[in-house]
Design a protein around this nucleic acid. Structure first.
Length: 103
DNA sequence: TGCGTGACTAGCC
DNA sequence: AGGCTAGCCACGC
């Protein structure tokens, strides 16, 4: 049975390895909806019930932590990424291209 | 059934 | 080079 759009997003996001990050567009393309990058972020927004979904490892194509505003703390998302060895500066991932992981 | 909204992306000015 | 607008799809009311 085909999983819901959101569930597909969770499946891909959960596959992101430790210390790596990816973009909404990459995920959207992976699930077969390259035009629905916005839906990926939307899905993560309601992923509050999905603890296994490391939404903090998902950023926009510029490496900007666009979704950090949706996290509990003001810098929680950044703290989590730095905890995995990802350097963050001004809400932006440093060496984003190197940390980028394609599903 | 229809309009508005959004954790995006790409293109144009 | 930087900022703004348009297009896109799925969900909620």
């Amino acid at each position: 049975m085909e999983k819901d759009f959101f569930q597909r997003v969770y499946e891909v996001v959960k596959q992101i390895p430790y210390g790596k990050i990816t973009t909404y567009g990459a995920i959207a393309k992976k699930i077969g909806a390259p035009k629905s990058a916005r839906m990926v972020g939307y899905a993560l927004n309601v992923s509050g019930m999905q603890e296994d979904v490391p939404a903090h490892r998902v950023v926009n194509r510029k490496g900007l932590l666009t979704g950090k505003h949706h996290f509990q703390g003001t810098n929680l998302m950044q703290q989590l990424l730095e905890n995995e060895g990802v350097k963050i500066k001004e809400n932006t991932v440093q060496n984003f291209k190197e940390y980028f992981w394609e599903p």
